[in-house]
């Protein structure tokens, strides 16, 4: 069984330094996904990883844990964003997920697709991040309550 908070100064300092950098890099990967390797999936997993590392080292004491547990209630927001953009395309007169139907004034068709790809990637990222952290929390809770099985 894990017993955080992990009582090592080096570990705590490193993680405190590392977590914000990983999160910034995750956001960079999300926005850079249209120009190079990366995208919503990887960005979501990286963001989840930063939360998980914080959780493993600081445990119940960290501020991240409470924020993360509150955010878990938003499970499905990312999916809603992705599917919702598909629906907006329907309203705009196109087929489902055909981004040319997305009505954004002042943008031509290619730019509309560009924006839609970015938004749907954000949707995928949010969904992956929340689902991953949710699975980690579930395993965590199972360990806390399932001690009688061990």
């Amino acid at each position: 069984m894990i017993q955080p908070p992990y009582d090592s100064l080096i570990c705590r300092r490193t993680v405190r330094l590392l977590v914000p950098m990983v999160q910034i890099f995750a956001v960079y990967v999300l926005f850079f996904g249209q120009y190079g390797p990366g995208g919503g999936f990887v960005a979501g997993v990286m963001f989840a990883a930063s939360v998980v590392v914080d959780l493993l080292v600081f445990g119940d004491q960290g501020e991240t844990r409470h924020a993360a547990e509150r955010l878990l209630a938003s499970d499905g927001v990312g999916l809603l964003l992705f599917a919702g953009i598909g629906g907006l395309c329907l309203i705009g007169g196109g087929a489902y997920l055909d981004y040319s139907g997305l009505v954004i004034p002042g943008l031509d068709e290619a730019e509309r697709r560009h924006v839609a790809i970015l938004l749907t990637q954000a949707g995928v990222g949010i969904d992956i991040a929340v689902a991953s952290v949710s699975i980690v929390f579930s395993l965590w809770r199972a360990g806390e309550t399932g001690d009688e099985h061990a």
């Binding site: 120009y35 390797p37 995208g39 730019e111 697709r113 790809i117 990637q121």
Partner: peptide, 9 residues
């Protein structure tokens, strides 16, 4: 068509 240089994306 999409102004996205990463074709995979």
């Amino acid at each position: 068509e999409t102004q996205t240089t990463n074709i995979v994306t």
